[in-house]
Structures are given as C-alpha cells and as structure tokens.
C-alpha cells in the first residue's frame, strides 16, 4: 500500500502526545509494521515530536508541530516540522549516555529515537525551519 503524504498538525502541548502515540501506531499497523514493533515506532516519533515542541516551539501552544507521513515501498517516512530554527546537534550537544551526563533527568529523546529507528536526520524545511526525517523500514 502506498500512501501519499498526509499531514497532522498539533499544538505545542504535551497533552497531545498520547493521541499522537495512538495515531502513529495506527499508521504503523496500516503499513503492516509488526505488532511487537509498533510501540518502538511510536516511541521514536513521540520523542522527536517532544523535542520539536520543547526546543523548536518553546512549548508555545500557539505554535504547531506538523507531522507528515508517507507509506512508501519498503518504508514509512515521517517528516516532523516545528516553527523554530534551533540547531538540534548544538541544543542536544551532549551525550546522555556517558559520564556525569548519564544521570541527567532529560536529553535522551534523540538518542532513543536514533537507536529505535533506522534513519533519523535533522535538517531544514524550505522555509528554514527545523525538520526531522525519520525512516522506518518495512520488511
């Protein structure tokens, strides 16, 4: 099944995350992601959306995160756009898995998303806003 890009627009409010989790798992199910992997997919997308809300949109509920997904041959592609122009590698420029940073209470989202998904890339939209691309391969 091929699905052309469909957009979901969410306010920058953490109360939307549970709904997003359910939507992402429904997308995964429709693309025949294995049942056991659905929660891993939703964790990866929710983590990146949380970063977009907190870092990109500074948790301003008037700003939105736009998630666009496409089901393509052998993969699902998610584009997660916020309204900021933060520099993810700079803002997240520490490794929460090492040394003293191991005991930080936050900052693990990108690490987790990158380990669960096969491809996570930070870039910019044509308008210069932050865009994260996540590719989930389909077997």
């Amino acid at each position: 099944m091929i699905v052309q890009p469909i957009e979901i627009r969410l306010p920058s409010d953490s109360s939307v995350l549970e709904t997003l989790q359910l939507i992402v798992e429904a997308i995964g199910r429709s693309a025949e992601v294995e049942e056991d992997d659905l929660s891993l997919l939703s964790i990866a997308v929710v983590e990146l959306t949380k970063n977009a809300i907190e870092h990109g949109n500074k948790s301003n509920p008037e700003k939105h995160v736009t998630i666009s997904f496409s089901i393509l041959p052998n993969r699902i592609r998610f584009l997660i756009d916020d309204e900021g122009s933060w520099e993810p590698e700079k803002a997240l420029g520490f490794n929460p898995g090492e040394g003293k940073e191991l005991l930080l209470t936050r900052g693990r989202g990108v690490l987790i998303a990158r380990n669960l998904a096969k491809w996570v890339e930070f870039g910019l939209t044509p308008e210069g806003k932050t865009r994260v691309t996540l590719i989930w391969p389909l077997t």
Binding site: I43, K50, L104, T105, R106, R108, G109, I112
Partner: peptide, 8 residues
Amino acid sequence: WMDSSGLG
C-alpha cells in the same frame, strides 16, 4: 509504554 520522560 514508556519513553525518555519515564527514564528521566
């Protein structure tokens, strides 16, 4: 279901 918030 748990993400990095839970780990934090």
